[in-house]
């Protein structure tokens, strides 16, 4: 009888700790192979056949189609430059420049992986933006206001409440092929006040 209890004890620890840690490492950390620039993180090997097992498990369990090296690279930010979580009820200023790319797109996503959309789908208010429709300063840098309050210049509207993620996708960018030779610059994300 005692041996059975001991086996159950070992099995319970093994299954619980093993399954929980596997789930956690897929959901939360995917730090292996990541590059961090300021508030932004990218996983340049997420789609390639050199992808590490954690990245591959993550990519195949969350219903995404990763970008290939010749296609582009997606940078993701969940926090601003002060380390605070990005919130839909706050206004942010994205400032600076991006690494070289043929084009890039900027999209805010909710926690569930759907992009932040207006309640009225016929709305023309911009809820995502791209590099072809941007006002820039003479030195090529730009500012994009992100938040619920309309702002002159480049404005990306958000609405609702709760945390969100910003994804900046660089298409046809050399940083996927010569990572390490150039230190890419990414725009800063500064909180300029919350409505509540």
């Amino acid at each position: 009888m005692r041996i059975i209890i001991q086996i159950i004890f070992v099995l319970a620890i093994g299954v619980m700790v093993g399954a929980t840690s596997a789930w956690y490492s897929i959901q939360r950390s995917h730090g292996i192979g990541a590059i961090n620039i300021g508030a932004w993180t990218a996983w340049p090997y997420s789609g390639g056949n050199q992808a590490d097992p954690y990245t591959l498990a993550r990519a195949t369990s969350d219903s995404t189609i990763p970008l290939g090296a010749a296609e582009g690279l997606a940078f993701e930010a969940t926090r601003d430059n002060d380390g605070q979580l990005l919130k839909l009820e706050c206004n942010y200023l994205l400032e600076g420049n991006t690494p070289k790319a043929k084009l890039w797109t900027l999209t805010p996503y909710r926690q569930d992986g759907n992009s932040v959309r207006p309640a009225d789908t016929s709305s023309l208010i911009p809820h995502h933006t791209n590099s072809t429709r941007l006002l820039r300063y003479t030195d090529g840098t730009f500012q994009i206001a992100i938040g619920p309050l309309p702002t002159p210049g480049n404005w990306l509207a958000t609405h609702g409440e709760g945390a969100f993620r910003l994804v900046l996708r660089l298409y046809d960018t050399p940083i996927t092929s010569n990572a390490g030779l150039v230190v890419p610059v990414m725009p800063k994300i500064n909180n300029i006040g919350c409505t509540q």
């Binding site: 004890f9 070992v10 099995l11 319970a12 620890i13 093994g14 299954v15 619980m16 700790v17 093993g18 399954a19 840690s21 596997a22 490492s25 498990a57």
Partner: peptide, 12 residues
């Protein structure tokens, strides 16, 4: 149990 957990983690 922890060794078994490691094996299960890697297998998953």
């Amino acid at each position: 149990g922890l060794i078994l957990a490691g094996i299960i983690h890697i297998s998953i």
